[in-house]
């Protein structure tokens, strides 16, 4: 088994397994967070590949798309689900920022790891540093907008 396939399978398994740790009363909140973040990663990653910023040499659907599937479809949305479920609503501004920073860093350094050590993802433009800065900024924006949406949605739909 190559390192790429190992990461694909384990990322898939971790995402599925973490569903069982979601408390039952939070299912609806988790579901809408998951879908919301998917709606971000999909167009964003297609745009990045189309503009030639990243490539995915090893991927799940080589004929149908140039975009890596499992990470964008399951893994990053799942990280966002846990970001929402564990969000410290009553904490201070600094702790909230720290919460953002930890979860965003988790996604960013996973991307960096795959970019450096595997053929799953390959940045085509810029240095590793500029790539890191870019992913930090974009993920912060995705997380912020998605959380604003989730706040609006839970208020309208009476989610706990």
């Amino acid at each position: 088994m190559t390192i790429e396939r190992f990461i694909m399978v384990s990322v898939f398994a971790i995402s599925i397994a973490s569903i069982f740790y979601i408390p039952k009363e939070k299912y609806r909140l988790a579901l809408v967070s998951f879908f919301m973040f998917q709606a971000f990663t999909w167009p964003a990653i297609i745009l990045l590949v189309e503009l030639g910023k990243i490539e995915f040499p090893v991927r799940e659907f080589p004929r149908a798309t140039q975009v890596g599937f499992t990470t964008n479809y399951l893994f990053y949305p799942m990280i966002f689900v846990w970001f929402i479920l564990m969000f410290p609503i009553k904490a201070s501004l600094f702790k909230k920022f720290l919460h953002y920073f930890i979860f965003v860093s988790f996604s960013v350094w996973f991307i960096n790891f795959t970019a450096v050590f595997t053929a799953l993802e390959n940045p085509l433009a810029g240095t590793l540093f500029s790539q890191t800065v870019r992913t930090y900024i974009t993920f912060f924006i995705y997380y912020f907008i998605s959380r604003v949406f989730i706040l609006w949605f839970s208020k309208r739909s009476n989610l706990s």
């Binding site: 919301m36 709606a39 609006w152 309208r156 739909s157």
Partner: peptide
């Protein structure tokens, strides 16, 4: 909000 949920579920 209902429309948003339907939209997001369909694209999944």
């Amino acid at each position: 909000d209902k429309a948003a949920l339907i939209f997001l579920t369909t694209q999944f």
